[in-house]
């Protein structure tokens, strides 16, 4: 039970970091932490007590297996979040070239 609550706490830490920090790199890290927490939660949901990894083995007696669906989903979600992070980092590098600063409060040309 505490594991699930800790995942949500991690998610909130990531959300705070993404919302309140001024440095562009810290915002990207915050979004990364949120994604990791969501992936963690999803894999934890698949746990069945006393289960083993969901691979068939004909020579062993298998009592119960954990749910394999969250593992497949998280494998895809990790790659998706990776692409988003890569795009954000590329935009951040170009932003530094053009504006000369990583401070999000100073990158504020579009106003109104």
């Amino acid at each position: 039970m505490t594991a699930y609550i800790l995942c949500l706490v991690l998610f909130s830490i990531g959300l705070y970091c993404a919302l309140r920090k001024r440095n562009v790199v810290k915002i990207i890290i915050g979004i990364g932490i949120m994604e990791y927490a969501a992936n963690f939660l999803f894999v934890l949901i698949g746990y069945r007590s006393g289960g083993r990894s969901p691979i068939y083995a004909n020579d062993q007696v298998i009592k119960s297996m954990v749910d394999p669906l969250p593992q497949a989903v998280v494998a895809v979600a990790i790659v998706l979040n990776l692409s988003v992070t890569l795009l954000l980092v590329a935009i951040a590098i170009k932003l530094y070239e053009k504006y000369g600063t990583f401070d999000i409060t100073k990158i504020n040309d579009l106003k109104g």
Binding site: L15, A18, V24, I27, I28, I31, M34, E35, A38, N81, V84, L87, L88, I91, A92, K94, L95, K98, Y99, I107, N108, D109, L110
Partner: peptide
């Protein structure tokens, strides 16, 4: 300059939504 700034803000807010 402005395209990158707009894209960054869009990307951050929208990926928070995705999460």
């Amino acid at each position: 300059k402005h395209s990158l700034e707009g894209a960054f803000k869009y990307a951050v807010m929208s990926s928070i939504g995705s999460v």
